[in-house]
């Protein structure tokens, strides 16, 4: 894989620190943390069984809850309650949420779709469309071209383009990815590139590699945060194994796709 290219995203303003203040579990217990701060370049994974409150957690961030959601959590931006425009104007909102349900419905070519978004953002920067597509192509193995129609892109291409668009055009300093691991994107690549861009990234995930690659891991249970883990290097060996297994599985996946019989593990 090539080294991450230096996409500038220079028109984007600098990141914010987003803080989560505790709420309650489904049975009314207080969540056992004082405050979770998320700054530029941080990677956090949210783990826990189905129905444990993972999606509600990132939804609280997406809507900037102030004690008015089912969980009772409050979200601060740079230490205080954010201005309303910041939360309500989609062009100012510092968060982009991408889920498995997120679709591009507009039947335009990739170039025209991005041009439309760039225009609505009033961005003058030359070459931003090409840079966005190039970045998207770092996340997916199926090459996206300028002339491809948005509605004809595969799930993996769409998700890759959405992440690239959120970085380059929306300038969103915080990107929320809800269980997109099966969507055909290079998740380790996404994490590396987002770190490079000083973006904060929150993954809702069941994927061991993604969980181990994150700086912090929030463990959900019964609608609330049960633990916040900071491995601080203690999981290095496990991460190394997970990466090796990932390489092995990727290679097998490619061969299975090609129609090979897999008679050995190498």
């Amino acid at each position: 894989m090539p080294a991450p290219s230096n996409h500038s995203g220079m028109h984007c303003s600098t990141g914010h620190t987003i803080s989560i203040l505790p709420g309650r579990t489904r049975t009314g217990e207080h969540e056992p943390f004082d405050r979770i701060d998320i700054g530029p370049g941080d990677t956090i994974s949210i783990v826990g069984p189905t129905g444990s409150g993972k999606s509600a957690f990132i939804s609280d961030i997406e809507v900037f809850a102030r004690g008015d959601t089912a969980t009772g959590r409050t979200i601060l931006v740079d230490g205080r309650l954010p201005d309303e425009a910041f939360v309500r104007d989609p062009a100012q909102k510092p968060v982009a949420l991408i889920t498995q349900n997120t679709r591009c419905l507009t039947d335009l070519t990739v170039r025209d779709f991005l041009a439309m978004h760039v225009r609505s953002r009033k961005i003058e920067k030359q070459g931003i469309i090409g840079e966005t597509i190039a970045l998207a192509n770092e996340f997916t193995g199926e090459k996206i071209t300028e002339e491809a129609r948005m509605t004809a892109l595969s799930g993996g291409q769409t998700r890759s383009l959405m992440v690239a668009d959120a970085i380059m055009v929306s300038c969103a300093p915080l990107i929320l990815l809800d269980e997109v691991e099966n969507a055909g994107i290079f998740k380790d690549r996404v994490i590396d590139v987002l770190r490079l861009h000083h973006k904060a990234l929150i993954f809702v995930t069941h994927d061991p590699l993604v969980a181990l690659m994150s700086d912090r891991r929030i463990v959900m249970k019964n609608g609330g945060v049960a633990k916040v883990l900071e491995p601080n290097g203690s999981e290095v060996a496990a991460l190394r194994s997970a990466k090796e297994m990932n390489v092995l599985l990727s290679r097998m996946r490619e061969r299975i796709r090609e129609g090979d019989l897999i008679t050995g593990v190498a």
Partner: peptide, 14 residues
């Protein structure tokens, strides 16, 4: 708004 891309959300509002 949970079903469409950030780009479409922004253009729609615009």
């Amino acid at each position: 708004t949970d079903l469409v891309s950030q780009a479409e959300k922004e253009v729609f509002s615009e």
